[in-house]
């Protein structure tokens, strides 16, 4: 086994890793069952504006819509699940006293920290993919398939995506969701290299995400000027793949800004870890 595989094995050997999966499974099942039971009410609320002027035929409340709805509701909460592992992956070595044992072995500190970072990204991807599979599979079983109607509430827009385009767009949307969650994982990872316990990085990352979200939503010109550079502004990049036409330019800009965040955060973590004075 190489270093990356060892780190992945270690990560998935801890029960804490499965909290996110369990939580997501519970939320998805609960949401979809409740939506199934109150489908008529949801439809009426959802299509209230449209129904004034249009007769609507077809399966609007389908598995694809449910998936987009859950993603829309959860994409602000998934970061907290990501931090459970990302904030723990380096600092837990110090907490458990295994860091010396780890670093006296031949692989360099850079190799060790890179492997841990890649394992963090692997876990992040696994969480998002798990969410996607749960939402889509259960959604299609309970609600069937059909065209996707997306509500963009703040812009008062309804976007219609034909059924044939949806699987590819969903794939791209979930890939983009992994991309944005990687930034949160990177922040937690950096904090984890700085700390000697897991609580600090987890709470610290949550605080950063919340503060950035708040700053991004303040209606003041000073904060508005900062908004384009905040990673939280670009975390909804996944939604852009469910728009018509797909705004590729915006996606490229968001993807670049998110990637830049990941690179800078990992670079700092690498430097910090290489220079770190191991005392435990």
């Amino acid at each position: 086994m190489n270093l990356f595989q060892i780190e992945v094995y270690k990560t998935f050997s801890r029960w804490r890793t499965y909290i996110a999966f369990g939580f997501l499974a519970l939320i998805v099942i609960l949401t979809e069952v409740v939506m199934k039971l109150s489908a008529r009410e949801i439809l009426e609320r959802m299509m209230r504006s449209m129904q004034k002027d249009f007769l609507i035929f077809g399966n609007v409340l389908n598995g694809w819509f449910i998936t987009a709805f859950i993603m829309n509701s959860l994409h602000l909460h998934i970061p907290f699940l990501i931090t459970l592992v990302a904030g723990d992956i380096v600092s837990s070595e110090a907490t458990s006293g295994t860091v010396r044992l780890l670093l006296v072995r031949p692989p360099s500190r850079s190799a060790v920290i890179t492997a841990k970072y890649l394992a963090t990204l692997f876990y992040t991807a696994a969480v998002v993919i798990f969410l996607g599979i749960m939402c889509i599979m259960l959604g299609l079983i309970l609600f069937g398939s059909g065209d996707l109607i997306m509500n963009y509430a703040t812009q008062f827009r309804i976007v219609f995506i034909p059924e044939t385009e949806i699987p590819l767009r969903m794939f791209l949307a979930f890939t983009a969701a992994i991309w944005s969650m990687a930034v949160v994982a990177s922040i937690a990872f950096l904090f984890s290299t700085l700390a000697e316990n897991s609580i600090g990085p987890i709470i610290g990352t949550m605080a950063v995400v919340i503060v950035f979200f708040v700053i991004g939503n303040f209606p003041f010109d000073f904060f508005r000027a900062l908004t384009p550079y905040l990673f939280t502004t670009h975390m909804n990049i996944w939604q852009r793949f469910l728009d018509t036409p797909i705004p590729w330019r915006q996606i490229m800009v968001s993807a670049a800004i998110l990637a830049l965040h990941c690179i800078v955060l990992f670079a700092i973590a690498l430097i910090v870890y290489r220079r770190k004075d191991i005392k435990s």
């Binding site: 449209m50 249009f54 007769l55 609507i56 035929f57 077809g58 399966n59 609007v60 059909g146 065209d147 109607i149 827009r157 309804i158 976007v159 219609f160 034909p162 059924e163 728009d243 018509t244």
Partner: peptide
């Protein structure tokens, strides 16, 4: 409303009965 062109079949019977057959969602 960003939607592609949609096709359907309409059935009408006097004085006020109407029905649509559509592929997928139809407004």
């Amino acid at each position: 409303l960003k939607a592609p062109d949609r096709r359907a079949k309409v059935y009408y019977k006097s004085p006020d009965k109407v029905k649509f057959a559509a592929k997928g969602i139809f407004f």
